[in-house]
């Protein structure tokens, strides 16, 4: 029978050597292994009737050389590929795709959080068009019917008999007819483009996310 302090010293020496041998492993794994082996030794010790020096050394021998245990831990840590982040289109990506056109601020935040898109994709999602449909339906009418409407006016000066002395137009109205038609057509075209742009952007982002998820995990 040896003294308890000496026995405790042997065990804590062993655990100290194990702890240094486990250095370099992920912290959680290192703690888990150290914890389990600490408990294991404590339980085995409680089964020894007469804890002799030889018994205890025997016990620690059976647990194994710290280097060997750490070596096994290192082998086991390199092998599994399971813990790598999986490249799957998840709820975040789906929500980002739905919300970017419909509820732009939330969608864009998710767009920037998800690893599925690179900087270019994120910029496209954010800026084409900025604000998504919220912008188009709430702000575009203001602009269209406010300041940006084709503006211009004509003035006719007549004499007392009703003969036109002078007829002059300014701004939009001053343009020849075919140019006015062209500008109006361009305006309608721009409006239609703005209407489908969020959908086109969402389709592009979906394509990019699918491409991302099909690439091998690096």
């Amino acid at each position: 029978m040896m003294s308890a302090p000496h026995a405790d010293q042997l065990v804590s020496d062993y655990l100290g050597r194990l702890d240094s041998a486990l250095a370099g492993l992920p912290k959680a794994r290192r703690e888990e292994i150290l914890d389990e082996i600490t408990n294991h030794i404590a339980e085995e010790r409680s089964r020894l009737h007469d804890e002799s020096d030889a018994d205890l050394r025997n016990l620690l021998d059976r647990v194994g050389d710290p280097g060997e245990v750490a070596g096994a831990a290192r082998d086991e840590t390199v092998e599994p590929q399971v813990q790598r982040p999986s490249r799957r289109i998840g709820p975040v990506e789906v929500l980002a795709l739905v919300l970017t056109p419909l509820f732009w601020p939330a969608g864009v935040i998710l767009l920037w959080l998800s690893p599925a898109w690179n900087l270019r994709d994120r910029l496209i999602g954010t800026l084409l068009p900025p604000g998504g449909y919220i912008f188009i339906f709430f702000f575009l009418p203001l602009i269209l019917f406010g300041g940006l409407q084709p503006s211009g006016s004509c003035m006719t000066v007549s004499d007392s008999q009703g003969n036109v002395i002078q007829h002059s137009c300014t701004g939009f109205e001053a343009l020849p007819g075919w140019q006015q038609d062209l500008l109006q057509a361009a305006g309608i075209g721009m409006f239609l483009l703005l209407l489908v742009l969020p959908v086109l952007t969402a389709i592009y982002l979906t394509y990019r996310a699918r491409k991302w998820s099909s690439e091998p995990v690096g």
Binding site: R29, H40, V63, G64, D65, E68, A73
Partner: peptide, 15 residues
Amino acid sequence: SEGTIYPLLSRMRAE
């Protein structure tokens, strides 16, 4: 080495 079962268990848990 009996201690090597714990790295094994830890890995199987991760998997």
